[in-house]
Design a protein around this nucleic acid. Structure first.
Lengths: 234, 234
DNA sequence: ACCTGAACACCGTTCAAGT
DNA sequence: ACCTGAACACCGTTCAAGT
């Protein structure tokens, strides 16, 4: 065995390599693990070397969003090539398909929602995604004004996620005593939870509780409400 | 003038005083300013003294949420005492009024949404708020199952905010050149923006772009969609 | 019981120095 | 041009010591 084979081949660092490593690190170990120092270690390099490829931590996060945004648009393009609903015929189906396709990408990167929301400058790739959403709504007969309102009403759902408020909780450590106490303080909520008893098997979560069924329900409710507005104004 | 008057009266630190200072600090200087050291300085005390009243940074954030949650429920109670819509007669009006009342509190604490979403354990006061939401939906004729779905569909809107994806941007530094370039890449979006041209005056923002008009539009769209589901199933 | 100061293990970032 | 190491100014938190 040679000497050169022993030490890991040190490809020169590149912006692309930095971003791939950062996204992978966030995917596997969570966003908190993404520090300049840790990222440097993963790449076999000093943290300070990263500054030759990204101007700082914030720029790194911007670039990570852009990286996933590109993945997102590639996914959408693939869907469209494979035959997607025609927005002029059925805007609802077209938008629904787009949101669900986006969701697949988002589920691969659970840290994306929170980083996306923390950005002060917005990603060109993500804007491009929204441009496609606008195109669908306009083709569906929404005016500019209603399209604008619709974007706000749909919020993050149109890009495949909803940032839920609570982790539903594992329910493992909730003793009978605690449950009885809760029933006193929040009786309506407890009665509801006892009745619905989530038994849908393993849920796909994105950040917090946000399973597929609830995501689609919320999306459809919003699409229904928008369709009504369109009929009224259109 | 006496000596005792000169140095700031040093009331003994209490949990309440710590929480009030933390909330005020977050309100005025943003969440990033809330560090144990900075908070200690504000209270005229070493950072380590705080650990006698909160067990750590995470516990402090939990307690801040609980503090605002209490303010939220007090606001709701005041609204109800002043005469709120009867949910049995008009669940829509009752829920709408509750969400808008909650929003007033949220606007006083723009950091609340992000902290709320980052909590792993949920606040009793906030849960109490949701218990009231469940009560309204049940009184309005939703079953337990539909009430559960409705909570997911409404998401954070029911507690007075939507976490918008983008800051609309000041538009101050967007040159003609950049606009022309954008029109190439995202033509649909640019056409829409040119048409709607936000001129509603100063917008109330909560975190990101989330003005009152858009908030109410999104809320009403969701309420419409839910009412339809209720009619179908009820 | 309540508060302190030093210390530890982390951050992001600057800067002068190496090759 | 690319990478390094020491240094700076911050974190949260532990722990032994003070009153």
């Amino acid at each position: 065995m040679t000497h050169t084979a022993r030490r890991p081949t040190r490809r020169p660092l590149s912006r692309e390599r930095v971003l791939e490593a950062a996204v992978r690190l966030a995917d596997t170990s969570g966003l908190d693990a993404v520090s300049m120092r840790r990222l440097g270690t993963d790449l076999g390099v000093e943290a300070m070397s990263l500054y030759h490829h990204v101007s700082g931590k914030e720029a790194l996060l911007d670039a990570m969003v852009e990286h996933v945004g590109a993945e997102l648009n590639a996914e959408i393009a693939a869907h469209e090539a494979a035959g997607a609903p025609d927005p002029a015929k059925d805007w609802r189906a077209a938008l629904r398909a787009r949101a669900l396709a986006a969701r697949v990408v988002m589920l691969r990167h659970p840290w994306m929602p929170s980083v996306l929301e923390s950005r002060t400058e917005m990603s060109l790739e993500v804007v491009r995604y929204f441009d496609g959403v606008v195109a669908i709504l306009m083709a569906g007969g929404f005016g500019h004004d209603l399209t604008h309102h619709a974007l706000h009403a749909l919020g993050s759902r149109v890009i495949g996620f909803t940032q839920e408020l609570f982790d539903p909780g594992d329910g493992e450590d909730t003793s009978e005593e605690v449950l009885a106490q809760m029933a006193q303080v929040v009786p309506n909520l407890m009665a509801m939870l006892a009745d619905v008893a989530h038994t849908d098997g393993p849920e796909q979560t994105l950040g917090w509780c946000d399973d597929q069924t609830e995501f689609e329900f919320g999306l459809d409710v919003t699409l229904d409400g928008l369709e009504r507005r369109r009929e009224l104004r259109g």
